[in-house]
Design a protein around this nucleic acid. Sequence first.
DNA 1: ACCTGAACACCGTTCAAGT
DNA 2: ACCTGAACACCGTTCAAGT
Lengths: 187, 187
Amino acid sequence: MANVDTKRLIMDAAQPMVQANGYNALSFRDVASAIGIKSASIHYHFPTKGDLGAALARRYTATGKAYLATLRDASADVPGLVASFIGIFRAALANDNRMCLIGIMAAEQADLPDPVRAEVAIFTDVCVGWLAEILSAGGAGDDPAVRRRAFAIFGAIQGAQLVARGRNDMRVFDQMIVTYRESGLIP
Amino acid sequence: MANVDTKRLIMDAAQPMVQANGYNALSFRDVASAIGIKSASIHYHFPTKGDLGAALARRYTATGKAYLATLRDASADVPGLVASFIGIFRAALANDNRMCLIGIMAAEQADLPDPVRAEVAIFTDVCVGWLAEILSAGGAGDDPAVRRRAFAIFGAIQGAQLVARGRNDMRVFDQMIVTYRESGLIP
DNA sequence: ACCTGAACACCGTTCAAGT
DNA sequence: ACCTGAACACCGTTCAAGT
């Protein structure tokens, strides 16, 4: 069990660091000292930095997917569901101006090992798929027009997070979301 | 003059590297070897990495600002002008899946030295200001509602670039822009 | 099974030394 | 004025060695 616990300790320490500073800036030595082990020990649990990055992205996607499922099962109100979706990204900003783990990784795309890049793509698929399902209001969500709209909403939210973070100002995020809604992009 | 030329050589080599891999991943040794000098020599022209990053952002903003001015002077067609604006970001993606220099730096916000962060904010101001001016169609562009809309358009474009880059697929970018336009967010 | 110290080639930075 | 080699403390990674 010590194995599993240490693995989790490493991931729990590393995730907020990536959301704050990015994958490139993540330091094994920083993670190790945060939980009281040596950096060489991390390699026992995650052979390479890419393995750790992929594990973080995978867990992040799994957690998000499960949360989105509970949201969808708890309500059929489309604007409310989309607002809850946006709330996930807002919460990251509220947490010390952090970004969605996947959003910041997407910006570092060219630096990512292939397995991490693959996890980033899966997260986008999960989000866009969920939004498309919501927007089709009970339908399968595979209508190309609905999928295109889901993609646009997802991108606009990511952009709002990126720009607001650059300003370190959540009001920028909130105002952009309001404007998206007024324009009709977001229901 | 050798000084000025070397400065420009350094910046010309470094800029596409940052647009491809980010500020964090920029290596003085890579830049130096690309132009046939030693990494220590770069410090003569740019004492720190932050100085180089700030110079890159400043030049990028100045070039963009001048280009936007010529666009505005050459046409009064609002949808066409906005399309030209979007074309700047599309061109970055078309250039080996690169990002807007400022967009990728915004994602690395927490890792940036203060002077670089300041330049990133200025770029956003220039873009949003230009869009607001265009949208107000001859007015001063200081109507808060117009500014909010300009901000939302800018963020949505940045998000489209971020997501499309994560997919390494320009069609994703183009489709998102079309959807923004259909929704009425973009004129 | 899990951790570590020491070594490796990288990084930005500094600085005395070259021309 | 401009460049460089060598050193410094960092980085991810490897591996023999410890428990």
